[in-house]
Nucleic acid binder design. Sequence first.
DNA 1: TGCAAATATATGTAGGTACATTTAATTTAC
DNA 2: GTAAATTAAATGTACCTACATATATTTGCA
Lengths: 149, 149
Amino acid sequence: MEIEQAIHQKEFANERERAIVNILYTSSWLTYIQMGVFKKYDISMQQYNVLRILKGQYPKPATVNMLIERMIDKSSNASRIVEKLRSKDLVVRSECPKDRRQVDVVLTQTGIDLLTNCTKEVYAIHKKTDKLDDAENKELNRLLNKLRS
Amino acid sequence: MEIEQAIHQKEFANERERAIVNILYTSSWLTYIQMGVFKKYDISMQQYNVLRILKGQYPKPATVNMLIERMIDKSSNASRIVEKLRSKDLVVRSECPKDRRQVDVVLTQTGIDLLTNCTKEVYAIHKKTDKLDDAENKELNRLLNKLRS
DNA sequence: TGCAAATATATGTAGGTACATTTAATTTAC
DNA sequence: GTAAATTAAATGTACCTACATATATTTGCA
């Protein structure tokens, strides 16, 4: 659906403003269509994001700072998210021996299993709802990268 | 900056997953660069969004339902946002005569003035930070519309 | 008409987020 | 070697959001 119909706005100041609203709207739309999966596994989108970063590091630990740096939404409170995941036994936290200010965070087997299943379902929903082919997704990536450059 | 560097993720399952993460990240990036302006005017992004919808309707009133339908992030609590705006004298609320369940919401002159100034600054920031030309923004819009189709 | 269903909005509650501040450990400069 | 500055993480606070539920009004239909 065109962005004009989606939010019932007939006019935009220019193509740039139309594109910016379209990015914000599409992001919100993507978040919405994934939400059902996250809810099924009783995690938030930010928690999923942290689990994926930990998977990328596994079996090496990640620190809270590393999580903040790599999260899609940087402004989130990584330390409290880690505590949520720990209380569900999805990660373990331990004092980093090299720098005792830091905390080493590592996925547990429970965390790995949950993430594997959850990711499978998220990808399936993406495949079903994203109507772009490979070349178009490449071009979309190029444009978004250039926009922020 | 390429999305890989931005979130320090080296590999994606495919171009679709790369594009989806890129949309979410770019949306968060755009929100962040606008935030300073909203903070200056002491409004939230959602409040700005509602003010813009009311501007599009002006001088006709909008109902709460209409606001929900047209907001970028549909899941928000429009009724409480309207109350926030009313307490700052940016809008007025009155019982809709045709259907007393509904509430007519209209911008005040204070609201119009704030929105005019705020929008000018938001557009200026967009112009400064969005590195795409007109044709590229058009193509970006086409791709995002198709993605959601 | 009268009563159930639908609709529009408001609100209670739990949890999430932003920002500033605090605490603790490490590094730097002298 | 020590005090000041920096860094990593945690936490207090206020606000925001999501979801379920409540309240009031209108609609539809027997």
